[in-house]
């Protein structure tokens, strides 16, 4: 397990975050009905199986992902975390021979139903990738506007405002406002990743999937992405796949631990409040992984 290298000055920031408090300390501060309202389920997976040809990559996953919280998916390499994540916006099905079984519901809608169009779905379920991937032929402005310009819908009249708002939300506006016409790829890696987040926000999604969004970034850029995630929490349902367990413990409300079975298929070992998973997991396997004994 990697030892975390982080600048000291961010320590106070971490300790003030609600996620690092024990769940029990947080819940009683809310009125009961508020707490119930806050815990609505956004995404329900039911007996989800994902295949690449004859290879089963994910086996029998049933889990509920709460709305407007951050859910982290952790687990060793090859345990199907990314595959599971990519099934949530139906990117999985673009791979050769990919197919799924089971049900996946977002707000009660079965997203694999025949009547649901994958392209439409992806406007509501955005994604941020492992490596920053701004469109190299587009400017910073063009990158943020790309989803709206290329999405086929009517172009909004207030595109400039949307671009500014999204860049501001992605904590990038001040750094780029004077050269919006510069290529998106001229930014640093961390800035590019925040640009990609701004781009995802511009189409007004409800769910944001993040596939190891900070794994190619340095510790400071990573910290900024994590801060940004906490800013977005509450407005978006965020599902993040991460190899970095400190990151999961810092940012997420819920943690799901995946592992790989004998048949090399990934499965959900357990899921729960992040504090519980990290301090008092039900499964021995989870504890072994968290304490660095395998994986």
């Amino acid at each position: 397990m990697a030892i975390e290298i982080r600048p000291r000055e961010d320590q106070p920031v971490v300790t003030t975050r609600p996620t690092t408090e024990p769940a029990s300390a947080r819940v009683p501060t809310r009125a009961p009905e508020q707490a119930a309202a806050a815990r609505t389920t956004k995404i329900e997976a039911r007996d989800l199986n994902l295949y690449y040809g004859s290879f089963r990559a994910v086996r029998d996953v049933t889990m509920d992902i709460p709305a407007n919280e951050i859910t982290a998916i952790i687990g060793p390499s090859g345990c199907g975390k990314s595959t599971f994540l990519r099934s949530l916006n139906r990117l999985h099905e673009l791979a050769h021979g990919a197919r799924m079984e089971g049900r996946l519901l977002i707000d009660g809608v079965d997203i694999y139903e025949r009547s649901v169009d994958a392209v439409d779905l992806r406007r509501l379920v955005g994604m941020v990738f492992q490596r920053p991937n701004p469109f190299p032929t587009m400017s910073i402005y063009g990158n943020v506007a790309s989803g709206l310009r290329l999405g086929g819908g009517p172009k909004p009249a207030d595109l400039d405002e949307i671009v500014e708002r999204c860049l501001t939300r992605a904590a990038l506006w001040d750094e780029v406002k004077d050269h919006l016409g510069a290529p998106g790829t001229s930014l640093s890696g961390g800035q590019q990743q925040r640009l990609c987040i701004a781009r995802a926000l511009a189409v007004d999604p409800e769910v944001i999937l993040m596939d190891e969004p900070a794994s190619s970034l340095d510790p400071i850029a990573t910290l900024r992405i994590e801060e940004l995630m906490l800013e977005l929490r509450g407005s978006y349902t965020i599902v993040i796949v991460t190899h970095n367990m400190q990151q999961a413990s810092r940012v997420s409300d819920q943690t799901a631990f995946f592992s790989m079975g004998e048949d090399r298929a990934g499965y959900l070992v357990e899921m729960g409040q992040t504090t519980t998973i990290f301090t008092n997991p039900r499964e021995q396997l989870t504890e072994d992984y968290i304490s660095g004994r395998f994986g």
């Binding site: 673009l94 392209v119 992806r122 955005g126 990738f129 991937n133 989803g147 781009r199 995802a200 189409v203």
Partner: peptide, 12 residues
Amino acid sequence: ELREAGYALGVP
């Protein structure tokens, strides 16, 4: 990744 970035934005 570039194609996927496009797909993930709901671009046909």
